[in-house]
């Protein structure tokens, strides 16, 4: 078990933290190759109408570590901290610089590039701590590293929580 998960074991969100995230996501990541500077990413915009029959297009609970977009997240979920999966909590500032993951949306079977923009300027939200490491790399690959403080380019570097914003579809280099 991952140690950050373990740290949250005693919290009220125990059930949400300890379902089958790892099993669901194992082996499903698609490696992004080349540079990962966001403006240069080879992405195609996802259609909001995509979705498997009988399943919402964006399934899952954004306040749970299991939510599909959190496959490479490391930090407190903004969804539990007064924000959402793509909005910062009131009074914080969203970092324009970030790390990315490539996560599988179970609704349409497609891989999406997810930008984990941090929200900054207030201290640790302190709840819903999640740590998934799909394609996480050490900090010599900062674009793929979730152990850095990504409150960069903001007025304050103090870290509050993390979002998981859909950037677009990942182009699978194997296809």
């Amino acid at each position: 078990m991952n140690w950050l998960d373990k740290l949250m074991e005693g919290s009220a969100r125990r059930v949400a933290q300890h379902s089958s995230r790892r099993g669901v996501l194992r082996g499903l990541g698609s490696m992004l190759v080349g540079t990962a500077a966001l403006p240069l990413l080879p992405v195609a915009r996802a259609s909001a109408a995509d979705g498997a029959p009988g399943m919402p297009a964006d399934p899952g609970d954004p306040a749970s570590c299991d939510y599909w977009r959190y496959c490479a997240i490391d930090g407190f979920l903004c969804s539990c901290c007064g924000g959402s999966q793509n909005e910062c909590p009131p009074g914080t500032e969203m970092s324009p610089i970030t790390w990315i993951g490539t996560c599988l949306n179970p609704a349409d079977g497609k891989h999406y590039i997810i930008s984990y923009n941090d929200c900054c300027g207030k201290s640790s939200c302190g709840t819903c701590l999640c740590n998934a490491n799909k394609i996480d790399r050490p900090i010599y690959r900062p674009d793929l590293s979730n152990d850095l403080n990504w409150c960069l380019g903001t007025k304050s570097a103090i870290y509050n929580c993390s979002t998981a914003i859909v950037v677009g579809l990942a182009i699978d280099p194997k296809k």
Binding site: R26, K134, D136
Partner: peptide, 9 residues
């Protein structure tokens, strides 16, 4: 372990 278990205890 597996590819993404590099931070597992």
């Amino acid at each position: 372990g597996e590819k993404s278990s590099h931070q597992d205890s």
